[in-house]
């Protein structure tokens, strides 16, 4: 484990297993850690379990999914050992979420302003004035014109890009130590995606916030991350610094993922999906793995 006693990692996920009620594992012995101010990208195809890790950290797993084994430490505190109430408070104090779809992540019946300031006042105990000033300053920082008017607006009066900016501002507002960004650009126009990525990166650097960034896009990986975790079927395939992932990918699945990323520079290159043979081979591995795991559990 990296980090000393006085400076614990912002996040440690250790041997995390998540399973359906029937015992089928969706996450298999996943371990990863984030140092303060570090950006780690979780990359993988749909169903690889990358969003699930973020949800497990924040305590918002769907009701039918359970953490069966493993530990999650947020700033050195064991989340699993806490009562639901303490856990909720602890997570709210040090973590925040930038959600995937800005169109559904804002309450359509409430004005933007209170949606940013409410948690600051009611959970973090700030004064109304301080919360409002912080919100206005952050909205300005995420390049929203006329923040005062936007605070009075309803979500349907804003574009998708603007709503995602609002959600970014709301995530950074309570100065969290960790932000989980769950595919924050997937639902946006390609033109807006870049700006949003840059914005998250800038704010992250200014505030030295650790970010767990979930994406399926290797292009995004190159732009934002320092560390990469490559997932397949709920299992870590490779964990490495971003530079090395692109210059010297060691796992065949990582190589296949990089090869499958479309490139604007070379549109004529034929699309090369991850080969079926490789997927079959990896799945065989996992079946053997699960059998061993079950045998060990008994």
């Amino acid at each position: 484990m990296t980090g000393s006693q006085t400076h614990p990692n912002t996040l440690d996920v250790m041997q995390l297993n998540i399973a359906l009620p029937n015992g089928h594992r969706l996450l298999r012995d996943v371990s990863l850690s984030l140092r303060p101010g570090e950006v780690r990208v979780l990359v993988g195809e749909s169903g690889a379990g990358k969003s699930m890790i973020g949800k497990a950290v924040l305590g918002i797993l769907p009701q039918n999914l359970k953490v069966t084994e493993g530990e999650i430490l947020l700033e050195g505190q064991h989340l699993n050992a806490m009562t639901p109430w303490t856990r909720r408070k602890t997570v709210a104090q040090s973590a925040a979420l930038i959600p995937q779809d800005p169109l559904t992540a804002l309450n359509p019946a409430r004005r933007i302003g209170p949606q940013i300031t409410d948690p600051l006042v009611r959970i973090h105990g700030w004064s109304r004035t301080k919360a409002r000033e912080t919100a206005l300053a952050l909205l300005d920082r995420v390049h929203i014109r006329d923040p005062k008017r936007v605070m009075e607006s309803y979500p349907h009066e804003l574009s998708g890009g603007m709503r995602q900016r609002v959600l970014i501002a709301a995530a950074f507002a309570p100065s969290p130590r960790l932000i989980v960004a769950d595919e924050p650009t997937t639902a946006l126009d390609v033109t807006v995606q870049k700006q949003i990525l840059r914005l998250i990166r800038e704010l992250q650097q200014e505030t030295a916030t650790a970010v767990l960034f979930v994406t399926h896009d290797m292009g995004v990986v190159a732009k934002v991350s320092q560390q990469v975790t490559v997932l397949f079927a709920g299992k870590v395939m490779e964990d490495a610094p971003t530079e090395r992932i692109f210059t010297d990918p060691r796992h065949p699945y990582t190589r296949a993922l990089i090869a499958a990323t479309p490139s604007y520079a070379d549109l004529d290159r034929p699309f090369s999906p991850v080969p079926q043979a490789l997927i079959a081979e990896l799945q065989d591995d996992i079946v053997r793995d699960d059998a061993r795991h079950q045998g060990g559990a008994r």
Partner: peptide, 25 residues
């Protein structure tokens, strides 16, 4: 809905999520 999930992450209790975020909609 996502906005109720977000409210939970922000530290609101289930009851307060129901009363403040969900009821009106």
């Amino acid at each position: 809905q996502d906005y109720t999930t977000l409210a939970r992450v922000r530290g609101f209790s289930e009851t307060s999520v129901i009363l403040r975020e969900a009821l009106r909609n």
